[in-house]
Write a protein that binds this DNA or RNA. Structure first.
Length: 468
RNA sequence: GGCUGGGUGGCAGAGUGGUCAUGCUGCAGACUGCAACUUUGUUUACGCCGGUUCGAUUCCGACCCCAGCCUCCA
């Protein structure tokens, strides 16, 4: 079984062939930390989290790096607004980000490097680019000289002429070419800065990723990920820098870009202000529900984010848990203790198959529901255990079904579970005497407290009624 | 204007040259004391117009819409 991935640069899906099959290297762009991250940031992180899980299932070693941009004018501005030290703001936002991402079931990357921890490497790269005449110093700045890179534009299929026509940006007078971008810029005393051959200053946005990739993964990597809105100019510029530095513009084997989340008909973005933070969504919804919602669309497509989507995701996810819950009794009954099949340690093909095909998560979820159906129809404990195991294995690739099944249904009950048990027993007694009015009254009473009852062959169970 | 990617059944969202996506919702049946859970069935689905083909939602061409990028953005 091959993994196939869509590569932005080649605009085609192709088989994934790592540089070193014994060690896959992947880098994804993380956000700039100056505020609570929004669910669109979460989408990107979830997508590459799933990709890494799939890669880990297929290759012996995977190193996953996701950076944090902790030096940026937006951080400086926000810190000034809030009147807090810049480092404090960045650190607080970083902590919050890790908390939010964890709630979405995103596993920590192997390294989460920060731009400010790589200033030396950044200076080394800039110096080299200047020596190679791909960059020049002007007016306290260091700029990348775009015309010096014949491959500029090849990632996003742009011609230099087009870029000039579409240029909406004011051209700084010290630029040799309007397309040139900043590698290093001077800092006033009130701004964070580091000493450099070009005076005290701070790095431009794009160079940090070049430096962090080189530091943590080396001259060549397998996959570079990020949002599609980063493809240009961020990744194009990064490719120009690293490509010229390493004299190899194919230092990234596969460029992968996730689609945007739409709120209403427009892209969710901080500059438009139409964002929902993960933090606020978590007030009303389980992180796992949000994750399911994200995975319900293909990563390269844009996804309409609204209450309807979250509601449907909640119900869909519940049906998966329901299958697990329904099968619990059957699984625990001792039956043919068939030393479980050879497939015991394998991931279900219904789930990993689609995921290996350019991360087709909607189909993988369909596979999960297929397994759930078969589990619901299972009649032997052996089959039930096998299917349950498969579901959990599939879930471990998607980062779903990670909660305790019983807790999924019973947590946040407004009544004491002991009281609920007592009422259920009372109702059972009434039922036994065919006092159905009394039995129904108890059920209605529980329901009015948000507790729904289910009679099964193996007794009565209850659950909290979700989302009103 | 240029460059990407889209328009699928009530909703979300995959996919395929001729056979079921899947989930949610609605309706009907089974199960149940009644419910719930589960399960079965279910509503001319593939933007528009041509072309290729025995056959196209799927391939080709034109057209109409939508979103993203071309400035910071996941």
């Amino acid at each position: 079984m091959d993994i196939n991935l869509y590569d932005t640069k080649r605009r085609a899906k192709r088989p994934f062939e790592p540089i070193d099959p014994n060690h896959v290297k992947i880098y994804a762009c993380g956000p700039t930390v100056y505020d609570r991250v929004h669910i669109g940031n979460g989408l990107s992180a979830v997508v590459f989290d799933v990709l890494v899980r799939v890669l880990r299932a297929c290759f012996p070693k995977v190193t996953y790096i996701r950076n944090i941009t902790d030096i940026d004018d937006k951080i400086n501005n926000r810190a000034r607004e809030l009147n807090v030290p810049i480092q404090t703001l960045a650190q607080e936002c970083t902590d919050a980000l890790q908390e939010d991402y964890a709630a979405l079931g995103i596993l920590p990357p192997d390294v989460e490097p920060k731009a400010t921890e790589h200033i030396d490497e950044i200076i080394v790269m800039i110096s080299s680019l200047i020596r190679q005449e791909h960059a020049y110093e002007a007016d306290g700045h260091v700029l990348f000289y775009v015309p010096s890179d014949p491959e500029y534009g090849s990632l996003t299929n742009k011609s230099l002429d087009e870029l000039l026509d579409g240029a909406r940006v004011e051209v700084a007078p010290y630029k040799k070419d309007p397309k040139d971008f900043v590698l290093w810029k001077p800092s006033t005393p009130d701004l964070p800065g580091w000493d450099s051959p070009w005076g005290r200053g701070r790095p431009g946005w794009h160079i940090e990723c070049s430096a962090m990739i080189r530091t943590h993964l080396g001259a060549e990597i397998d996959i570079h990920g990020g949002g599609t809105d980063l493809a240009f100019p961020h990744h194009e510029n990064e490719m120009a820098q690293s490509g010229c530095f390493h004299k190899n513009h194919d230092y990234v084997r596969y460029w992968m870009h996730n689609g945007m989340l739409n709120l209403g008909s427009a892209k969710m973005s901080k500059s438009l202000g139409n964002i929902q933070t993960i933090h606020e969504l978590l007030q009303d919804h389980a992180g796992e529900t949000l994750r399911y919602a994200i995975l319900s669309g293909h990563y390269r497509q844009s996804l309409r984010w609204d209450d309807e989507l979250i509601d449907q995701s909640e119900r869909s996810l519940t049906s998966l848990y329901q299958a697990l819950r329904n099968s619990e009794k059957l699984c625990t009954t001792d039956g043919e203790d068939v030393s479980t099949n050879a497939s015991h340690n394998q991931f279900p093909s219904e789930v990993i198959g689609p995921l290996m095909d350019d991360l087709n998560t909607p189909r993988a979820l369909a596979g999960m529901h297929e397994l759930a159906l078969r589990l619901n129809l299972a009649t032997t404990s052996g089959a039930a255990r096998e299917l349950r195991d498969q579901m959990l294995k599939g879930g471990s690739l998607l980062g779903l079904l990670t909660r305790d099944v019983d807790a999924f249904f019973t947590q946040d009950a407004t009544l004491d579970p002991e009281d609920i048990r007592r009422l259920i027993a009372e109702r059972a007694a009434a039922k036994a005497k065919k006092h159905y009015d009394h039995a129904d009254a108890i059920r209605a009473d529980l329901l009015s407290n948000g507790i729904a009852i289910e009679d099964t062959r193996d007794g009565t169970i209850w659950k909290v009624v979700k989302s009103q």
